[in-house]
């Protein structure tokens, strides 16, 4: 198995087979909060992909060059990763505000929200800390490139589902839904069916 093929499967596994929203039910708050309009969900998706990859990269460095050599990673990973993510988002916000005001206008509202997004912490933790999440049927060596690819898979999976779900909700808005199911209840049902469909990806490949 070539290395490239393995990376591809890693990406696919993170995006589809263990989709963070529909299979693992992490980050459901933005999933329901942002998904009622297409525009906002696209903005959120782009920001999430960007921040997740950045956060994992820096978390990887923090883990491998600070926590692990000192032997304190086992119990300090959560506070340190939160520290990493919070400062990173601040930094990214500052840079974007200076470098590209239009991009800041498009992404600006979502950046502070992402600081508190559990999916970012989850992706960073499981791709960096050995033994945290080993359900993927793929040999995972916790190298830098691997971590980044894995996180990108998680983020793309998140974005794809968020955007598709937003499109679905926009159509549900116009559908003749029984009165007491309108709004969030029907969204929850749609999400459940959507999740069932995603379970079909389970065991899609084994290596």
């Amino acid at each position: 198995m070539s290395e490239l093929w393995r990376y591809f499967l890693l990406f696919l596994g993170a995006a589809l087979v263990y989709n963070i929203l529909l299979i693992r039910f992490i980050a459901l708050c933005p999933f329901f909060g942002i998904s009622n309009r297409m525009e906002t969900s696209i903005g959120m998706s782009i920001s999430v992909i960007f921040v997740m990859v950045m956060a994992t990269s820096v978390s990887w460095l923090a883990w491998n060059y600070a926590l692990e050599p000192l032997g304190v990673g086992e119990f300090l990973y959560i506070p340190s990763f939160i520290l990493v993510i919070a400062s990173l988002v601040q930094f990214v916000e500052m840079v974007i505000k200076k470098a590209s005001p239009p991009l800041y206008k498009a992404m600006g509202i979502y950046l502070p929200l992402i600081t508190t997004n559990c999916a970012v912490l989850a992706a960073a933790t499981e791709s960096v800390k050995p033994g945290f999440f080993t359900k993927l049927n793929i040999a995972y060596h916790y190298g830098f490139l691997e971590s980044v690819i894995y996180t990108m898979g998680v983020a793309v999976g998140f974005s794809a589902v968020l955007i598709v779900f937003a499109a679905m909700r926009e159509r549900i808005e116009l559908a003749p839904v029984p009165k007491f199911f309108r709004g969030v209840p029907i969204a929850f049902m749609a999400a459940a069916l959507f999740s069932l469909a995603f379970m079909g990806f389970a065991g899609m490949f084994k290596l």
Binding site: A66, L67, P79, S80, S87
Partner: peptide, 16 residues
């Protein structure tokens, strides 16, 4: 542990 968190905190604080 104190060293690690203080170090990281100061590093990121300084960077910011």
């Amino acid at each position: 542990a104190a060293l690690a968190l203080t170090g990281l905190g100061m590093l990121f604080g300084a960077l910011l």
